[in-house]
Structure formats: C-alpha cells, structure tokens
Computed example of a mutant assay.
Amino acid sequence: MRVVIAEDHVLLADGLARLLAAYRHIVVATVHTGPDLITAVNTHRPDVAVVDIRLPPTFTDEGLAAAVTLRRTVGAPVLILSQYVETAYARDLLTAGGATGYLLKDRIARPREFVDALSTVAAGGTVLDPEAVTQMFARDRTRRALASLSDRERQVLHLMAQGRSNAAIAQAIVVTEATVEKHIKAIFTKLDLPPSGDDHRRVRAVLAYLDG
C-alpha cells in the first residue's frame, strides 16, 4: 500500500513509517496539519491515509475535519487514530461513508492487527475500534432510557442536575416530597440504576442526563 501519514508527533510518525515499511508498505508523505494532509492526498493519491484526530494549530478535530473532507470530495480511504474514544467524532467519520476506520492509538502496539485494519480500510471496508463500539452502544442505551422518561420525570432530573434537594424540587414544581421521591425512583428504574453500595445513584442519574 501507498500511505500518507498525518501526525504531528515526530516519534510516532517515524514509528508508523517504520512499522509500515516492515510490512513492505510505502509512506509517500508525512504531514503535520489538516491542509497539508488534503494537499498530500490530492498530490500522491495514496491507497490510504493514517490521520491523528487532533492536529495543529488547535489540537481539537483538525485531523477529523480534513479526513471527512477527503472522504466527501475524493473518496480517499482514511484511518483515524485517537488517544481516547470520542464517540461523536467516530460518528462524524462513519457518516462520511465507507473506506473509513477509527482506532485508538494503543492498537499500534499490535502491529499485525493495525496493518490488517489499515488494509481493510484501503480495500474499501470500515474498521471501528471495539472500545468505541462499546461506548457508542452504551450512549445509545442511555439516550433511549432518557427518552422513556415522562415530562415530569425529566423536569425532576433537570432540577436534580442543578443540585437541588428533594424539598427544593418539590417546592419548584409544587408537589409533595413523597411525589418527588416517587419520580426519582422511577428515574432510577428507567435509567437502570439499581441500589449499589459503591455508586451514588443520584450522581449517576445526573451524569447520564448531562451525557445524553
């Protein structure tokens, strides 16, 4: 395969180049920014590009933005590398169409698996890191659970997220504290938050609300 690497960390970029060379693949260009990636791909027309999700100057999503642009303009196969699972970014990449991959950088430590994933993307397939799959499904379950809440339960959870006590919530929505407790119990049930000695269900419910 002919490969373009977009990675601003010199040592990692060099390590990737050496790894690919060991498997008889050719790195035709190594770049450090999103615009340079687009230029390199348009110039060299590689079989696949390996792209760090965070590139200069802001180190947020420049790599992802360039990858999505390449997918939508020239259909270039792209494998995104990320330090952590960022499900929103993974979804953005997948919606750009096939011949895409999203892997954690830890996977590079398993050279054969990494090269196989790269080959799959170059051949037009899709590769998604198992940890990303797990987190995406978990977030989908949370959103479905939140969607099952009644309007009143959602209102109570919103006030819980503001740090209000049961008494304050009762006063705000003009009901008894017993009614608030009933709503909170229903929220815990719908969010699948059984009693636990290790986790504070109220905090976990609020975190689920903020995440969803």
Rank of each mutant, 00 (worst) to 15 (best):
V206M: 03
R201Y: 03
D14M: 14
I26W: 11
T69A: 15
Q155G: 14
L104F: 03
Y89H: 00
Y209W: 15
A96T: 03
A117F: 05
T142P: 02
Q135D: 07
D8W: 08
A90Q: 00
F188G: 01
G34A: 14
D198Y: 12
T43M: 06
T100C: 15
A208N: 08
P77V: 02
G97K: 04
V180H: 06
V27R: 12
D199G: 00
F114R: 01
V174M: 02
A88T: 06
R91F: 00
A172S: 13
A21W: 05
E131A: 15
N166V: 10
I108S: 04
T43N: 08
E177C: 06
R152P: 07
A40V: 04
M160T: 04
M160H: 03
L157D: 08
N42D: 14
D192M: 05
V3F: 09
R139M: 04
L55H: 08
T126G: 03
L81E: 02
T60Q: 10
D192K: 12
T60S: 11
L11C: 00
K190T: 10
D151R: 12
A109K: 10
V68M: 00
A161S: 15
Q155Y: 01
R204G: 02
V156G: 07
V206T: 08
A29G: 02
V28Y: 12
I53K: 06
L210K: 12
T73W: 03
A29I: 03
